[in-house]
Each structure stands twice: as structure tokens, then as C-alpha cells.
């Protein structure tokens, strides 16, 4: 078989494609069977819910590809929300200034994770479970049980304003631009090549002159900044800064990244699959909600998909390997791979 044909075939058989097909299938089946899924309002809601998850999933994909993980993202989001509320209470009335300060805060919180992981060589799983609790705790220190909700209407409206002529919020365009930027960084730059190399074999990456420590540090800082951006959006969308904003969101983000085909062991996966997985989880969740499936069941479904996404690629790989081994025994050795 010729080289381009092989590539087309392998692309179609890839995990990305499976997830993309699943999104379309769920949307079509949902629209046909569940009342309301076909409505524009449904898609507006799905998009609003997917935006913060997508914002955090973008850098998280890169982090997981290097073989690390950041579980503190939802707490960074929560702490950012409370600081944003406090800034407003103190009378900071410039939205760009508030956003800039929040992004800076997020980057610093992420850099603290990065420092512990790269500077002290601690496992990121342990470090970020620690900061998951720490940052959420700090969020309660900032606002306690209060909520700051008296933002100007033009701020809150601007965050959820639709693209003219549609119901889809314009923020999705920001997400799209960032997704392209992260996609190019991961798939078409020397830095991206380095991420895959260090995720597969950090020692070989060091021997190739790749600065594993520095790269991972900046990735954690970027993840913090993106989580903060998600926090700003969260606050404005719900017009409410509270310490428990985004609680448990890290599960949705990690589920999307793994369901998107990124290996939890690092070194494998791509951004397209992750974006498809964010869409899949969003559509599935909201469609089932419309079908009056209880919230607990939805959580069970998310958890099961998470397990399936970790097990799935392994099973597919095992089946492929078995087929490949059996092939030489078949009477048609001329069949190309």
C-alpha cells in the first residue's frame, strides 16, 4: 500500500476518529430521541459548560503528555474566583486589570506546583493533590462563605454574549484560537517534539539536549494561568465569585484528556482527540440531563468513561498486537500492513 493511503487509513482507525464519530453519534441519537437536544438553546448551554473545561484541558494535555498531571486546576480556578471577587470589593474597577492580575495569580500558583515537581523532584500527583486542598482552603480564607455577585451587568453579559446571528457564545472563538495555538505548539514546533520525547523517555530527552526541568516548570505555570482564565470566565458567567466555584472540575478535565486518547503514562496522544472528548462529555452530559437522568448517574457515567478511556486504548492495542502476531500464519502473506 502506498504511503499516503497508509496514513489515511491509520488516521481513520485512530482514537481521535473514534471519539469524533462518538460525538456525532451521540448528537444525532440525542436529537432524534430526546426532546430539546435539537434546539439552539441546548447547544448554547453545552458550549457554555464546555468552555472552562476546554480552557484547562488544553494545557493539561501537554502536561499529561510529558508524563505529569495537575489535579489542582479546579482549586486554582476557585482561588482565582475569590481573589477576583475581593479585588472588586476593594474597588478595582478596571476589568482588564482584574483579568491581568488573576492570570498572574494563576501563573504563580501553577509555578509553585512546577517548583515542587521539578525543583524538588516530587511526583506531580502527590504535589497537586496537596495544592488541590491548599488552594481551595486559601479560597475559603479569602471569601469565607460569602459570594461576590454585584458585578456590572455589562461585564457579565460580555462574557456570555453570543456570536451575532447565533446562540453560541463568542468566548468559544477565544477557545478556538487558543486551541489552534496549543495544537500548533504541540504538533508543529520543536517544543512539542520535546514534550513527546520527555514523556516517553526523560533520560533520552536529556541526552538530546532538551531541558526537561525548565519545560515542565513553564508548563505548570501555563496550566495555572489557563485555569485562572477559566476562573474569570466562571465568575462572570455565573455572576458570582464563591470559594467553591468549580469544585471537582479537575475530574471533568482529566476525564476529557484521557478519553481524548492521551496516555496517562505520557508520550502519546494529541489535541484533536482531547477537544473531541470535551465535546463528547459535554453533549452526553447535557443530553442525559434533558432526559431526566439523575445527577448521580451522570457522575457514575463520567467515572466509567474515565476508566474506559484508560483501559480502552490498551485493549485496542492488545487486540491489534494479537492480530499482527496471527497474521504471518494466515495463507495470504502478501497482505500489506
Amino acid at each position: 500500500m502506498s504511503e499516503p493511503a497508509v496514513r489515511v487509513r491509520s488516521a481513520l482507525g485512530s482514537w481521535d476518529a473514534i471519539v469524533l464519530i462518538a460525538v456525532v453519534a451521540v448528537a444525532v441519537v440525542g436529537a432524534l430521541t430526546i426532546d430539546g437536544v435539537a434546539s439552539p438553546r441546548f447547544w448554547r448551554f453545552v458550549t457554555l459548560e464546555a468552555i472552562p473545561i476546554a480552557l484547562i484541558a488544553l494545557p493539561m494535555t501537554l502536561v499529561v503528555i510529558t508524563g505529569e498531571i495537575d489535579l489542582s486546576v479546579a482549586s486554582v480556578l476557585g482561588l482565582t474566583c475569590t481573589v477576583m471577587g475581593q479585588l472588586w470589593v476593594w474597588g478595582v474597577s478596571s476589568l482588564p486589570l482584574i483579568i491581568a492580575l488573576c492570570l498572574l495569580l494563576g501563573a504563580v500558583l501553577g509555578a509553585v506546583n512546577g517548583l515542587f515537581v521539578t525543583g524538588f523532584g516530587l511526583p506531580s500527583l502527590a504535589v497537586t493533590i496537596g495544592t488541590l486542598a491548599l488552594y481551595r482552603g486559601l479560597a475559603y480564607v479569602v471569601l469565607g462563605d460569602r459570594a461576590v455577585a454585584d458585578y456590572p451587568a455589562e461585564w457579565t453579559n460580555s462574557a456570555i454574549a453570543p456570536i451575532p446571528g447565533t446562540t453560541i457564545p463568542w468566548m468559544i472563538l477565544v477557545v478556538a484560537v487558543l486551541a489552534v495555538a496549543f495544537g500548533v505548539l504541540l504538533h508543529a514546533t520543536p517544543i512539542g517534539r520535546g514534550l513527546y520525547a520527555m514523556g516517553n523517555n526523560a533520560e533520552a530527552a536529556r541526552f538530546a539536549g532538551i531541558s526537561v526541568v525548565r519545560t515542565k516548570f513553564w508548563l505548570f505555570a501555563a496550566t495555572g494561568a489557563m485555569s485562572a482564565l477559566a476562573g474569570v470566565f466562571w465568575t462572570l458567567r455565573f455572576a458570582s465569585a464563591r470559594a467553591d466555584n468549580g469544585s471537582g472540575l479537575e475530574l471533568a478535565v482529566v476525564a476529557a484528556v484521557l478519553l481524548g486518547g492521551v496516555s496517562i503514562f505520557g508520550g502519546r496522544g494529541g489535541l484533536l482527540g482531547v477537544i473531541a472528548a470535551v465535546a463528547l462529555l459535554g453533549v452526553l452530559r447535557n443530553a442525559l440531563q434533558l432526559a431526566y437522568v439523575p445527577a448521580n448517574t451522570l457522575t457514575i457515567i463520567t467515572g466509567s468513561l474515565l476508566i474506559a478511556s484508560v483501559v480502552g486504548p490498551n485493549v485496542v492495542g492488545m487486540l491489534r498486537e494479537r492480530l499482527r502476531r496471527r497474521r504471518p500464519a494466515t495463507p495470504t502473506p502478501s497482505a500489506s500492513t
Binding site: Y196, A197, N200, N201, A204, A205
Partner: peptide, 9 residues
């Protein structure tokens, strides 16, 4: 295998 190459790439 460990230092010279990233075997899966």
C-alpha cells in the same frame, strides 16, 4: 535504548 533513543517515537 534508555539514553540514545526514544523507543516509541
Amino acid at each position: 535504548r534508555q539514553q540514545g533513543l526514544v523507543m516509541e517515537l
